[in-house]
């Protein structure tokens, strides 16, 4: 029997809104230790992994592992119907066939909303994603997620040249990180320097650079990650010309969300 319950409806709303932009379906795996979600986009250049430990839920009961593929757009639609203070219960019975029930309970309105989702896709074995080693990356940038969102917003408002998928070039050099996008009639560049000030010790921008690196990414992937990054105060970006970039935000001590994004080849 599976029956996790949580009150962080806004949290799941944000996750699903961010993910459903890019990924059609996701593989959900509930185990005794918590929830692991994985998805890969249709062009197979971006992958997302979300881990939410059992302690993140207000109540967590899962006496045997359960894997399911679910459609993210449908889930995002259902969550849009929920109030931010609803209590969510996820339920799959022992003799579960191919559906899972999400119940949204509004204590204030005395209203209960129920959605059954059919399993989609293979529901099978999760992807084999190795634990990434920071030491393998040429540069690691840590910055407040609000700052990262601001940069993505500027780039996406400017960088749509109309005739092809907008891209962003991220370069790390001399303890600074530069984001560059080309628009219809010009270019937009944001340069962030390393900062760690006494008055804002919790909001530093830290740049660890072994060697200079410059990579091209589709802006749509960055935008999706920037939406997901609202889950955390800080984002970490691992860059290498040999490996998929890893964009990560840690969710307190309760888990993380990671995007693995393969850069374009010049």
């Amino acid at each position: 029997m599976l029956e996790p319950r949580l009150v962080q409806t806004t949290f799941f709303k944000n996750v699903l809104e961010a993910l459903s932009d890019l990924f059609i379906e996701a593989h959900f795996e509930f185990s005794r230790t918590g929830l692991e979600l994985q998805a890969i986009d249709t062009s197979r250049v971006a992958l997302v992994a979300l881990v939410l430990r059992a302690e993140a839920f207000n109540h967590y009961l899962c006496d045997r592992g359960l894997s399911m593929g679910l459609n993210l757009a449908d889930m995002a639609k259902a969550f849009r119907c929920a109030n931010n203070d609803d209590i969510i219960t996820i339920k799959a019975e022992e003799d579960w066939t191919d559906t899972v029930t999400f119940t949204f309970e509004s204590p204030e309105d005395g209203e209960i909303l129920e959605f059954d989702f059919d399993f989609v896709g293979s529901n099978g074995v999760p992807l084999e994603i190795p634990e990434y080693q920071e030491s393998e990356y040429q540069a690691i940038v840590r910055m407040p997620s609000a700052k990262f969102m601001r940069i993505c917003k500027k780039l996406s408002s400017f960088g749509d040249s109309g005739d092809r998928d907008p891209v962003v070039i991220i370069s790390v050099y001399k303890e600074r990180v530069r984001s560059f996008a080309r628009g219809k009639t010009g270019t937009s560049t944001t340069v962030c320097l390393q900062t760690q000030t006494v008055d804002k010790p919790k909001e530093p921008t830290l740049i660890e650079m072994k060697e200079e690196v410059s990579l091209i990414f589709d802006l749509k992937y960055m935008n999706s990650f920037s939406k997901a990054s609202t889950l955390s105060d800080q984002v970490t970006i691992n860059l290498s010309s040999e490996l998929p970039a890893v964009f990560e935000c840690k969710i307190a001590e309760l888990g993380y969300i990671r995007y693995y994004i393969s850069p374009r080849k010049e």
């Binding site: 890969i40 250049v45 992807l127 084999e128 091209i216 393969s262 374009r264 080849k265 010049e266």
Partner: peptide, 14 residues
Amino acid sequence: WKTQLRMEAFYSFN
């Protein structure tokens, strides 16, 4: 732009 590298190049999938 040249084709983006696909994740299969890095990780093994079914």
